[in-house]
């Protein structure tokens, strides 16, 4: 309870500030509307309620966003082009595909790098340097380029996600697989353990904390990659497309709803990885 109370308080404060900001930011337009309708002397409470109920507010009130999410998910057919569940699913599927591929590739490359000095020296500097490059900028080009040779749909978007989630995993896993101390490795040497045995009995278990830490980063960034890669193909659907069309049509409520869904997806995905981490930790004898 001691940990929940401060969080709830801060969240409550955010909601209050949000509502207050909505009044302030939507007020000029509401005043214009009221002047046009020749309404004068509107009491403040009514005015506030009006600012929270505009069709295209500068800042929608939280309940408007939640209402939109409800209308666009539960109240709609799943296959509808306006359904956020449909768009969310498109984003989720390329996120997950990209994340799985990226993690697998990252782990595989980390294993090679840890065991081969030449690979370590050739690849690591480039992998680290490429972290500093705005890789997301390539996303639309990859989607269009692959589209030109007939690869469309989930795969190109998943490739972006894969590319993005691959980096944290490979860097984290190299660190993790190297985390056993010299004396632990020396111990394996005294047993004349093979490289393979050392890997499975020492390096791999030792790398688990780093694997999960980097997977949490990886899945979050994988979702971002999926959303951004959707921007370049408006016909493909996805939460990114909802952001884009909302921005073209000035549908602020739609943008915020898509944003909330993306945030919720990110939160759920990170929590799932976190839950898997706890399960593995418990099975490896960590204290609960």
């Amino acid at each position: 309870m001691n940990r929940v109370l401060p969080i709830l308080t801060v969240l409550f404060a955010i909601v209050v500030i949000w509502y207050a900001a909505a009044i302030g930011m939507n007020a000029p337009w509401q005043t214009t509307l009221n002047t046009r309708a020749e309404l004068t002397d509107v009491p403040f409470t009514d005015f506030a309620l009006q600012t929270w109920a505009q069709e295209r507010p500068v800042l929608p009130a939280p309940h408007q966003v939640i209402g939109e999410i409800w209308n666009a998910t539960v109240a709609l057919e799943f296959n509808s082009r306006r359904s956020l569940a449909y768009h969310g699913w498109i984003t989720l599927s390329s996120t997950l595909l990209g994340f799985v591929l990226g993690t697998a590739l990252g782990v595989a490359l980390a294993v090679v790098i840890v065991h081969n000095e030449a690979a370590n020296r050739s690849l690591m500097p480039w992998i680290i340097a490429s972290q500093t490059i705005p890789i997301l900028a390539i996303a639309p080009m990859v989607v269009v380029g692959l589209g030109a040779v007939g690869i469309t749909g989930t795969v190109p978007r998943a490739l972006i996600s894969m590319y993005l989630s691959f980096f944290p995993v490979v860097v984290g896993m190299v660190k993790g697989l190297r985390s056993p101390e010299a004396i632990q490795l020396d111990l394996m040497r005294t047993y004349d353990a093979t490289t393979w045995q050392t890997f499975w009995k020492l390096r791999w278990p030792a790398a688990m904390p780093m694997l999960f830490a980097s997977m949490k980063v990886g899945i979050a960034i994988s979702l971002i990659g999926a959303v951004v890669s959707e921007l370049s193909n408006a016909a493909g659907g996805g939460l990114g497309v909802r952001l884009l069309t909302g921005s073209y049509n000035g549908q602020t409520i739609q943008i915020w709803a898509a944003l909330f869904i993306a945030a919720a997806l990110a939160a759920v995905l990170v929590m799932i990885v976190g839950a898997a981490e706890r399960v593995v930790n418990t099975r490896m004898g960590a204290r609960p």
């Binding site: 990114g240 952001l243 884009l244 909302g246 921005s247 000035g250 944003l259 939160a267």
Partner: peptide, 16 residues
């Protein structure tokens, strides 16, 4: 929590 979110999605709102 916010660090893990796709904050980049606020771009259209900021443009408005």
């Amino acid at each position: 929590f916010m660090s893990a979110l796709p904050i980049i999605g606020i771009a259209p709102i900021m443009v408005m």
